[in-house]
Amino acid sequence: MKRKYRLMIWGLVLFMSVFVNVKVADAANNAGFEVIPVASKQQLNQKVTYFDLKLAPNQATTVTVNVKSTSQTPITVETSVAKATTNTNGVVEYKAFKQNKSWGLPANIEKVVTTDQNKIQLQPGEVKPVAYQIKMPKAAFDGELVGGLNFVKKVTDDKVKTNSSMGVKNQYAYTIAMVLHGQQELTKNKMSLGKITTRQINNRNVISIPLNNQTAAFLNKVTTKVTIKKQGQAKAVYTQKTSDGQMAPNSVYELPVRIGETAFRPGRYTAQVVVTSKQQHWQFTKDFTITKKQARHYNQKAVIKEDDSWLGLSLIITGIVLLLILIIVIYWRKQRRIKLLESELAASKRDSNQ
């Protein structure tokens, strides 16, 4: 009996392993290609799958990535280099996003790391090496210079038209992170708070709190607590907490305070911001203004849930008014009836006296 159970368990494990392998293979086939980084002699951490390099100032080297086609038809893969940034969700991005900002980079990794193989044409099953030339800045720096090597399969015009008619555009991509270490690691970060502004995300009003990581080092396990009050008042108008965020070196985290489906109210406000990253802590207080023009501009485009509290209040007031009218009518009719009875009694007395 025990042997039977063992066979059943091993059979289940074997089935799951095959199932997982099929899923991985399906993902690669859907993408149409794979990327395999070739180990570099300058690799600092041999256990990671991305490029983690330690180079001297002005040193030059080359790293290689093998691009393999898993497609049944010829494909073209486009490659580019992008600096690491932080998005509005507190996640590090290794792709190029114009809305993500940087702050005081020691160098632009998009110029430090280059390639002349921006387009790779592959036949089915073909493998081609893509070489990236790295030329470190002449001036020594401390910390890390971080970016990503991006690979995107070029979509044919027919597929774009087919997908766009359905409102969907599938695009398969891979990213390999690259970390270039400077002279020494930095363990203490400097942070500042930028100008607080209003904007929208997915047609929802948000108050943008820009946190500037001014140091060439990652910030991990980032938590934030934001309290916004009307200037001179103690009651909080908006509060928000976030946790488990990450900031790229020398990046700006445009922290959005999401106010939901509510309208901006013009006025002067004070924001109190508390940021924590492991053992590091920062506190900021800054005033900002939401003008009538800004509020009107965003409220016209925002998804706003109508405030129906006024409806309940108006119903209560209407009910009270109707009740008062009813009381007045009843009182008037009662008084009228009393006067009629009095007049009838007076008339009967006159008749009896005659």
Rank of each mutant, 00 (worst) to 15 (best):
V274N: 15
G319C: 06
E342G: 11
Q171C: 00
N202Q: 14
V274A: 14
Q171M: 12
T85L: 01
T49Q: 09
N66Q: 10
I338P: 01
F15I: 12
N250A: 11
F264Y: 08
V18N: 05
K305N: 08
G104E: 11
S277A: 14
T70P: 00
K68E: 13
P210N: 05
Q214E: 15
F141H: 04
L323D: 08
A234H: 09
L55M: 06
A107V: 06
Q133A: 12
Q59C: 02
Q123M: 10
K54V: 10
D158G: 00
W332A: 15
M8G: 00
N58V: 02
T86E: 04
V13Y: 07
K154E: 11
W282E: 09
N118V: 06
I228N: 06
R268Y: 08
P37F: 00
I209V: 13
L311E: 11
V222T: 05
I209F: 01
G319F: 03
Q283H: 10
K138I: 08
R3D: 14
I304N: 03
V112N: 04
A96H: 08
I259M: 08
G312C: 03
K153I: 02
E342A: 10
I36T: 13
D142S: 15
A28S: 11
Y50A: 03
A82S: 12
T86C: 03
S165A: 12
E254H: 01
G267W: 11
A295Q: 01
V13M: 12
S71K: 02
S71M: 01
Q283V: 02
K292P: 10
K169P: 00
V13H: 06
A84P: 08
Q214M: 12
T289R: 00
F15E: 06
K225S: 13
A131T: 12
V81K: 06
P137T: 08
Q72R: 03
T162D: 15
I75H: 01
V273H: 03
G319Y: 04
N89S: 14
F151A: 11
T86W: 00
Y5M: 12
K230Y: 09
M16A: 14
M1E: 13
T223V: 04
R204M: 03
G194Q: 05
L12N: 07
L324K: 04
P129F: 01
Q279A: 09
Q99W: 10
L326I: 09
K153F: 02
V48C: 07
Q233K: 13
A217C: 10
Q72S: 14
R258E: 15
M178F: 03
L211E: 14
Y174I: 02
I317S: 13
A236H: 07
G11A: 02
S80D: 05
I327W: 09
G260C: 07
L122M: 02
T276V: 14
T175Q: 06
P57C: 07
W103A: 13
L105P: 10
V18G: 01
Q123N: 11
T224W: 01
Y5W: 08
P266R: 05
T70D: 04
V35N: 09
T197Y: 00
Q335K: 15
F19T: 05
F19H: 12
F19A: 15
Q294L: 12
K2A: 11
